[in-house]
Amino acid sequence: MDAGRFAALADAYGGALHRWPPAEQAAAVLFAETEQGRAILQRAGRLDAMLDRHRVEVPSAALHRAVVARAATEVRQERRRRFWWLGFGLAGVGLAGAVAGLALVTVVNPDIQSDHYVMDANATSFGDAGPEQTEEDL
């Protein structure tokens, strides 16, 4: 690691190496032992010291209780919502299956067309065999 990269990382992440990108920490530790490295870290550390003065309050007991109290209701309602959506989903899958099945039956096994030609009660198998012979023909 050269001085330029070391300074750029200190500008971004400050003077504490544990906040630096993990992939560059090993090289940074080596450079930090140089005089130039120490000067860069010292300068970055001055701003860190100022930032460390900014503290935030720990959560109050009332806030903790309010957050926990809301959990029971929200988790239960969400589980109920998910249950109903699952029900709707299964019903939808069932309906889709029924429609698909009906479509399949229609395609694979279409209605057989009625044979109108053999339904005439007067017809015989010889009905259209040819013209009738008369006595005059004999």
Binding site: V67, R70, A71, E74, V75, E78, R79, R82
Partner: peptide, 9 residues
């Protein structure tokens, strides 16, 4: 946290 509770399941 409300969002955490809603998304947990």
């Amino acid at each position: 946290f409300v969002r955490i509770w809603r998304h947990a399941s």
